[in-house]
Design a protein around this nucleic acid. Structure first.
Lengths: 246, 246
DNA sequence: CGGTTACTTGAGATACGTCAAAACGAGTGG
DNA sequence: CCACTCGTTTTGACGTATCTCAAGTAACCG
C-alpha cells in the first residue's frame, strides 16, 4: 500500500466546501483544509518517502506516557484515545484522535500521555528527525500543522470549560455535538456513531460510567436523542445545541 | 521606556542555569530559555521596532472572547487571567499568564477566550501582521515560540486531568505547586505569592470560592501549608507534592 | 447456546455546592 | 488613633448532583 493513499485520506475539517455546499462532495471534503492541501504533489511525494505504514489492533498501544517521543503519527483510519493514568487507577482521557490527526508533533522530549487504539487503527509513522527536517523545508506544511494545533488547543479549552463548569447532561450534549462535527459522519438523519466505550466517554468527561449511561437514558427519555447500538441519533437538533453551549 | 527592556525581562522557565546552579544568578535566570535567548541582539532590535508598550490597570480587559485577534501580546509584568464566560454567569478560567508569556500567537481568527488583568499589567503589543512577518524570517524565534506552546499544552493537559479526576484538595495542591514553579518566586522558605482572588482560583479549578477557602484551611490545619496574607507558605514539601501528583 | 463483557438501572453515601452569617482587611474620614 | 464602610475571605448548616456499590439485562463470540 502506498503512503499516498493515506495522505490523501486526511480528514476534512469543518471548512466550507470550495465547490458548493453539497455534502456528497466527498473528494472535496477529504481535501479541504487538510494538511495535504498545503502541499503540491511533488511535496507529497517527499512526505511519502519518509513514511512507514503501520497498523494497530484495537486496544494496542501506540505509545506510553513514559516513552520517549521518537515518532510522529498521522492517523489514516480508526480512532485513538489519549489519556493519562494515575497510580491508583484513575484515568483521564485527554482527547480522541481521528483520521487525519497528527500525534507527537508538538512536544519535544516526551508526549505527556499514553495513546492506544480504540478500534483497529492504521497510521503513517514518521521518524521525528525526518519529519522535522521536512517541516523546516516546507513552511506551508508547518503552517498547516499550526492550524491543526490551534484546533486542538480550542478543543482542549472546551474540555476544560466542560469539566470545570458544566453538568453531566451538558457534558454529554457537548460530547455528542463535538463528535458529530469531528467525524462529519453524514450518516442518515442525525445519526452519530460512537466508536468508544462508555468507560472512555466517562474518563473523557470526568464522570463515571454509570452517570454517562443514566444521562444518555435521560436524554433519550426526553426525546432529545435515541440510543442506538454503536451510537446515538440526534432527534432535537436545537435542544442538544442549547445544552452543549452551556 | 524602550521595548528592549521589556523583551529582556522575559521570564525564565525551569531550565537549568548554564552558569551554575546559583539561584541568585538573576541575569542568567531571566535569559535562560526565554524567547529572547533565541535572538541575537540585532534581531531583538527588529522585535523592538514593531513593539508598542501598553499598560492595563487591574481588572481592565486586554481583549474579549468575541474580539477579532489582531494583536500579539508579550507580558512584561503583572498577571493576566484567561477565561470564558457563560450566558448564565458561570465562568471558567482557562489559565493565567505571567511575565514572559505570549498571548494571541496561536489562534488565527479569534482568541476563543477573554483576557484581563489580575494585577496592574504591562505588555508589549505587536500587530499580528508584523509579528507573523517577523516570525517567518526568524525560524529560531518560531522554534522558541513552539516550545512555549508545548509548555502551555502540557499545562492545559494537567488542568484537564485535575478537573476531571482530582479531588478539591488535590487540585489546590496542584495549583500551589504549579504556581510556585511558574513564578519561580524564590521568596523566603517555601512562600508562594498568590496574586489572584479566591474567585479566580475557584473558577480555574472548577470549584466554588467556599470550597477553595475550606480546602486551604484544611491543608493549613494539617500543617501542610500556612495561609498568609497575599499567599501561602508550603510547610510540608513532600506532602503537597504527593497530593499534587494525584 | 453458555460464558463473557458491556451496558443499564436502582438505592444509598458523599464530596462539593448553596445560602447565610460572621470575621477580616483595606481604605476613608473624623 | 479610632470608627465606619465596603469588599473579600472564612466558617457553618444544609441540600444535591454525582459517585459507589450491587444487581439485573443486553450484546457479543466462541
Amino acid at each position: 500500500m502506498t503512503v499516498h493513499r493515506s495522505v490523501a485520506n486526511l480528514r476534512a475539517s469543518s471548512v466550507a466546501c470550495p465547490h458548493r455546499a453539497d455534502s456528497r462532495c466527498e473528494e472535496c471534503k477529504v481535501r479541504a483544509s487538510s494538511v495535504c492541501a498545503a502541499l503540491r504533489s511533488d511535496e507529497l511525494a517527499e512526505l511519502e518517502a519518509i513514511a512507514h505504514q503501520v497498523s494497530f489492533a484495537a486496544k494496542e498501544s501506540l505509545f506510553l506516557e513514559s516513552d520517549k517521543a521518537r515518532d510522529v503519527f498521522n492517523i489514516t483510519s480508526g480512532v485513538v484515545r489519549l489519556y493519562r493514568l494515575f497510580r491508583d487507577g484513575r484515568r483521564q482521557v485527554i482527547g480522541f484522535s481521528f483520521p487525519g490527526d497528527f500525534l507527537g508533533v508538538q512536544l519535544s522530549t516526551d508526549h505527556g500521555f499514553s495513546a492506544d487504539a480504540v478500534s483497529d487503527v492504521s497510521v503513517c509513522r514518521f521518524a521525528k528527525r525526518d519529519f522535522e527536517a521536512l517541516l523546516a523545508r516546507k513552511p506551508l506544511l508547518m503552517e498547516a500543522l499550526h492550524g491543526r494545533a490551534a484546533t486542538i488547543m480550542r478543543l482542549m479549552q472546551d474540555q476544560v470549560v466542560s469539566l470545570g463548569r458544566r453538568s453531566a447532561e451538558e457534558r454529554m450534549a457537548w460530547f455528542i455535538t463535538q463528535l458529530r462535527e469531528r467525524t462529519a459522519l453524514g450518516g442518515a438523519e442525525g445519526s452519530v456513531s460512537i466508536p468508544m466505550s462508555r468507560q472512555d466517554i466517562a474518563d473523557y468527561l470526568g464522570l463515571t460510567i454509570e452517570t454517562v449511561s443514566r444521562t444518555l437514558s435521560a436524554l433519550a427519555k426526553r426525546g432529545v436523542i435515541s440510543v442506538e447500538p454503536g451510537g446515538v441519533r440526534v432527534l432535537k437538533e436545537g435542544l442538544i445545541g442549547e445544552l452543549a453551549a452551556g
